[in-house]
Design a protein around this nucleic acid. Structure first.
Lengths: 229, 229
DNA sequence: TCAAAAGTGTTCGCGGTACACCCATGA
DNA sequence: TCATGGGTGTACCGCGAACACTTTTGA
């Protein structure tokens, strides 16, 4: 098949990268850093790096992320796909990381937030990986409580609607969002009210997510066991 | 943290394994082989092995599987999770493979089918990986056309019901299964009829899946864009 | 009193389930 | 003609979408 490099054992490099997403302004953005050296010099890449010996994948990505953001600000982290590139012998395990809206983490000079919908020229296949991360988030917003990882501790329904709209990329009705999330028991009322802005309007109720760990809230309806079981 | 082995670069071993599932009889079974040598001698393991240099992950798992079954009989293959074990420096990328019901592939002497619901003592965390594979299959049976990868080329609705029941682990109504899959356009009538057995009964219509590539047939209903877009 | 923003009530429709009923065949 | 298995007709129901309408505030 392919010719083997002289040392067939050391040729493999395993690395971890993360698609770190946050809603900033009204757009879903991803954290990228600009490569100063070859390969792919000048292009934008996902944060990450080599897997060390005696290190788990998750520890590895957390360690590499620490160089770019304060990892304590990560509200959620889950694994995406693992890709292999046979030409350069690189294996990459991608993660999806989420940061709550509202915080503005300190990042190094080479690092920037970019709208996922409008990525610059990326190194390797990092553009595709970032888009895959967004798709994963989109899907999970529908049937899990991941919203907790995008939203601040407390919020009003319309603030939450704006977050969902940014993450999903389409308009979201505050009315239905509220009803769905309350019916599923995902949202909890805090009892507080937000006093309206200068423009007036009825004071908004303040909510929070009931849990800050991923839970499946809407099991697939299809082909489930009969109720008379 | 952990002490590093002298040569910190070569310590990583990347391997691929596969959860190969098939409905046999009326049970969902997984292909395992018995390890004849340490580590985990005598325990049952998923087929797989080392990732070679210059090889993609998918090529690797296909190559290793070829030693256990005729890979041409694999009707579907997709990636599951990648696990790392820091104690022995092993990274494992798991795949899910499916074989249509009805064929009985030739397998080596050390290899056996085992019901996923009742696994023997497995090597490493292969038991958990096998169960994760079954969960993935279960979920996808609900919202995709993966059924094609479990069923023979053509079949009657009640044969298909038995397959789904075995894979899902609960009773399935032939009536509703037929309606759901026809409504989604997943099943196609061949026009043929199956002549009834000795017990009589109306002849059953013969169906096949319209596609033998994975397709999402039932997008999540929740939080989709407004129709007036 | 008016505009703005939040929240509720009500209707609709889709898709999946449940179940009664009809159809075609072998013995 | 009866048992057996296959298939259809119909009613129901949960859930999300749409939208009109009410509530509460600031100016």
């Amino acid at each position: 098949m392919e010719r083997k490099p002289p040392d067939h054992i050391t040729s493999r490099v395993h690395e971890t990268v993360a698609v770190v997403l946050q809603v900033r302004g009204s757009t879903l953005q991803v954290l990228l850093w600009r490569r100063a050296r070859p390969p792919a010099k000048g292009r934008w890449a996902l944060p990450g790096g080599r897997l060390d010996a005696g290190e788990t994948l998750e520890r590895s990505i957390r360690r590499h992320l620490a160089a770019k953001v304060d990892v304590r600000e990560l509200s959620h982290l889950e694994q995406l796909e693992t890709h292999s590139d046979p030409t350069d012998g690189r294996v990459t395990t991608a993660y999806l990381g989420l940061i709550r809206s509202g915080i503005d983490p300190v990042v190094p000079a080479d690092t920037r937030w970019h709208p996922v919908a409008n990525l610059p020229a990326t190194a390797f296949d990092h553009g595709a990986i970032a888009r895959a991360g967004r798709e994963r988030l989109r899907a999970k917003l529908s049937y899990t409580n991941v919203g907790f990882a995008l939203a601040p501790e407390t919020f009003t329904i319309s603030e939450l609607r704006d977050l969902y709209a940014a993450a999903l990329g389409h308009e979201v009705s505050a009315t239905n969002l509220q009803r769905v999330l309350l019916r599923r028991g995902v949202l909890v009322t805090t009892g507080e009210l937000r006093t309206p802005g200068r423009a007036g309007g009825r004071p908004a109720a303040v909510y929070r997510f009931g849990s800050d760990r991923l839970e499946i809230t809407d099991q697939f309806a299809a082909l489930r066991p009969p109720e008379t079981a």
